[in-house]
């Protein structure tokens, strides 16, 4: 029985959605998905992972403090123990960090941030963007073990009845250790994972101008705030919010570009969003060329009205 090992991120046993999507992608190939979890509360993930398609679950024990190289060694050991033909993870910061480490340990070629992942006749074929989405590559893995990360918001979560068979594996430990995590001020959504992203640019004039952007994001509830590089460079917003070629690539259901001109490097990070709305006072701004809907005018007038309308729509639902 050939299998795909899926690294699953979780918080106290609650799997992250992006990891469930990766599990779903594995299940969709027809190859048996095995989930691997590590860290405090990992065993609690058995039920949600079974329900999302995992046929087996490998729980790493003894890993109270996350070690990236230790986890990579654990994954490589589990891949070998189960003779898995592929290792996949979400293209999150942990997934990206693990991909090359595991691929190196397995002497395989990595494929990062895939938007398509299929297996036919034992051969894995992926599609992945390069040059920040300006081109798409379709490629076949010819490695012993296909190692890949998958873009979030791209693959469907699977469902399955029955319980995954649970096995444990003691961690090998690593040379690098996480000694602390300073959580974000509030439970803010990451731009890469939010269903709605409201991004602001230099048109907001100053850091305080982002109030109207934050208000609109709050009205949606499931929205994250994004930013152009111009405002990150001006220290109005943190780099973690930057969308674009040298920031994050996002593909939400709905993307708002507010006071953003639409430079090619910004477009590279958001052009695969399902629906794009541009709000800009300059009717000739290039952002309108990629937007599905646009409003020409002053963001400081339009956004408060839009926020009200969204609040009313949410209340009516």
């Amino acid at each position: 029985m050939t299998s795909i090992l899926v690294f699953v991120e979780h918080r106290d046993g609650t799997p992250r959605r992006a990891s469930l999507e990766a599990l779903g992608a594995a299940a969709a190939t027809g190859v048996t998905p095995i989930a691997l979890v590590t860290g405090p509360g990992a065993a609690n993930a058995a039920a949600p992972l079974s329900a999302a398609g995992a046929r087996k679950l490998v729980v790493i024990t003894g890993a109270d403090h996350y070690s990236p190289d230790g986890t990579a060694a654990d994954i490589a050991a589990a891949v070998e123990a189960h003779a898995a033909v592929a290792f996949i993870a979400a293209a999150s910061s942990a997934g990206k960090d693990l991909l090359g480490r595991v691929a190196g340990l397995l002497d395989s070629a990595p494929l990062a941030d895939c938007t398509s992942f299929t297996c036919s006749g034992g051969v894995f074929t992926v599609q992945r963007p390069i040059l920040a989405g300006k081109a798409l590559v379709t490629a076949q893995s010819q490695s012993k073990v296909c190692c890949a990360t998958l873009r979030s918001n791209t693959f469907a979560v699977a469902t399955r009845d029955g319980a995954a068979e649970v096995t444990t594996l003691a961690t090998r430990g690593g040379k690098v250790k996480v000694t602390g995590v300073t959580a974000k001020g509030d439970a803010k959504l990451d731009v890469k994972e939010a269903a709605v992203v409201v991004s602001g640019g230099r048109g907001l004039r100053e850091a305080a101008g982002f109030k109207i952007v934050e208000d609109l994001a709050a009205a949606f509830g499931n929205a994250a705030v994004g930013a152009s590089r111009a405002v990150v460079d001006s220290h109005w917003r943190p780099h973690s919010e930057q969308v674009g070629q040298t920031g994050k690539t996002v593909a939400p259901q709905l993307y708002f570009a507010v006071g953003i001109s639409g430079a090619i490097q910004h477009l590279a990070g958001m052009r695969t969003s399902k629906v794009i709305v541009a709000i800009n006072k300059d009717a000739a701004a290039p952002i309108f060329k990629v937007a599905d809907y646009g409003i020409v005018g002053d963001a400081f007038e339009i956004l408060p009205a839009l926020t009200e309308a969204v609040k009313q729509a949410k209340a009516a639902n």
């Binding site: 076949q140 010819q142 794009i276 309108f288 990629v290 809907y293 646009g294």
Partner: peptide, 28 residues
């Protein structure tokens, strides 16, 4: 190389959108 590139293509262009209006009046 252990990766065989089968195809490189440009992403499909987004279909043309439209301006729904000007200013706060365009919100509805």
């Amino acid at each position: 190389s252990a990766v065989k590139v089968l195809k490189v293509e440009l992403p499909s262009a987004r279909k043309a959108g439209r301006i729904v209006g000007e200013g706060a009046a365009a919100v509805p």
